[in-house]
Design a protein around this nucleic acid. Structure first.
Length: 321
RNA sequence: GCCUCGGUAGCUCAGUUGGUAGAGCAAGGGACUGAAAAUCCCUGUGUCGGUGGUUCAAGUCCACUCUGAGGCA
């Protein structure tokens, strides 16, 4: 039986501020790799300081893909587009004889590459979404009732208050006549569907206290680097502040300051607090993924040593001298 | 030195006529199928400053004591 040859890829995941950037550079050097970002905010142009996007110097000559790729006001960018673009990047990098190294903290994007999720089946439908939102406003609980009738499995899975996901599930079943579960694989991959990659996933972990201290330091550093000015430029540029891109940490809180709703000190505090909560959600997400091999960064001298151990774990032990 | 008001969760504070404590914020846990840095769900974590006393029973009443703030000398 002719099996399609899978592309071998490496992945580095972990919460924000866990040191993914530095390790990925060290690892890319060892493995002759190019880096493909799995970060839902760094992919936007102009969101640089606040997204902790690696600078040109930090990229250190390693080619990075899917940074600065789309406009802040690009219509309907989503995980489906990401899945497609990342797939093309991986094929391209592999085709040029280099190792694709996916690095990022957006769990859904990581899963879009490592589970056979059939996103492409149903596009989002803004008009239908608007209509459904109107229905829910007029009579709260209505949408969950509808979902219960049309797609009981999804209704079981979702909480009645999780309107966003309820709308998406309704969108799929109303547009196609099939439920969301009938469209493809899921995270548990009970369908045993195949993905075109053979991923090895390394997770970066550290004690919670240490991670929070790093977040604190990093937010202060962002402010020194000019996060306020970056956000102010966007604030004044006329973008709708409801854009998905502008829900990113740092921007949202500074917009409140620009509107006079809080002091700059309160905005910075809020950025730190929300970033901690975000990191916690990322940890929850990655923790349940049994395929991730965890590396406690405190067990290693620095990113070079950590990169060496990851490459050994991936069966690529002998380091490039 | 005297007087007054405080000391209860990580923080700010509630706490009825005595019945071994509860709000907000912070925090912790979880979910996640085309917005995912989004969205949603769950959870009180406590030597009630200390020691004695009264009482069947003390965060609550009494005495002493430590400690903070203010006032008068």
């Amino acid at each position: 039986m002719a099996e399609i040859e899978k592309i071998e890829i490496g992945m580095i995941v972990g919460p924000t501020a866990s040191g993914k950037t530095a390790v990925s550079i060290a690892l890319a050097r060892r493995l002759n790799a190019e880096i493909i970002s799995a970060d839902s905010i760094q992919i936007y142009k102009g969101l640089d300081i606040g997204s902790a996007k690696p600078t040109v110097e930090e990229q250190a000559g390693i080619p990075h893909h899917l940074l600065d790729t789309i406009e802040i006001d690009a219509p309907k960018f989503s995980v489906a587009e990401y899945q497609k673009m990342a797939g093309e990047c991986i094929a391209d990098v592999h085709g040029r004889g280099k190792f694709p190294l996916v690095v990022g903290g957006t769990g859904l994007y990581v899963n879009a590459l490592t589970y056979p999720l059939a996103f492409t089946a149903v596009a989002s439908d803004p008009l239908l979404r608007q209509e459904l939102t109107g229905l829910e406003t007029a009579s709260p609980g209505k949408l969950y009732e509808m979902l219960r009738a049309l797609d009981p499995n999804s209704a079981d899975r979702l909480h009645p208050n999780d309107i966003k996901r309820i709308i998406r599930a309704l969108e799929v079943v109303k547009t196609t006549g099939n439920t969301i579960g009938e469209h493809g694989g899921d995270f548990s991959n009970e369908a045993k569907a195949e993905i075109p990659y053979n991923p090895q996933i390394a997770g970066l972990a550290m004690p919670r206290e240490m991670l929070y201290a790093r977040i604190e330091e990093r937010v202060d550093a962002m402010m020194r680097l000019g996060l306020r000015e970056e956000a102010e430029g966007i604030f004044k540029s006329g973008y709708s502040l409801d854009l998905p891109a502008l829900q990113g940490l740092g921007y949202k809180q500074l917009f409140q300051y620009f509107r006079g709703e809080c002091t700059i000190a309160q905005a910075v505090e809020a950025i730190k607090r929300e970033t901690r909560r975000f990191a916690k959600r990322q940890i929850t997400w990655f923790k349940r993924d049994p395929r991730i091999q965890w590396f406690d960064v405190t067990q290693y001298e620095g990113s070079e040593q950590l990169a060496e151990n990851i490459s050994i774990a991936w069966g690529k032990g002998s380091p490039v001298k």
